[in-house]
Design a protein around this nucleic acid. Sequence first.
DNA 1: GCCAACGTTGGC
DNA 2: GCCAACGTTGGC
Length: 158
Amino acid sequence: MNYWLIKSEPHVFSFDDLLAAPDQTSPWEGIRNYQARNFMRDSMKKGDTLLYYHSSTQVPGIAGIAEVASKAYPDPTQFNEQSPYFDPKASQHNVRWVLVDIKALRKLERYLPLAELKKQSTLADMRLLQKGNRLSIMPVTKPEYDFIVKLAKKPASS
DNA sequence: GCCAACGTTGGC
DNA sequence: GCCAACGTTGGC
């Protein structure tokens, strides 16, 4: 069982949107970064646990817990000229991008802002918090995951 | 295969 | 909107 953090811009697709989707499941479209793609293609397994992170928003942070609901398969938006994720260099015979389905499990007891995560010495080595990190999918260690779940159960400290 | 130019991400 | 950091592209 692996743990991952995935980033989404909430104005595009928030954790609440995922909760509201049929069966709380949705294809996770539009990943156009090779490192992130390779994680999905090579390392993600159905049933892996996901921390759902909101980026590019007023208060970035972790909103909820989801799981991988399928293995990787071709992202159909790469073939769709109408899609913002269209990739002219991709074709049915030359699949460039894959995706996995994700399923919302539950919201965290409270939203965990990035600023609060940064204050946790336990998380000092977390990939999310490293300078210049731009990956939209990144591995999370089990200790990091456990700590974050526990942190969400505590009231926010001022 | 180098690397400059350009594009994107994402916090602030 | 700014800008640092990083990724991608393409000429050579």
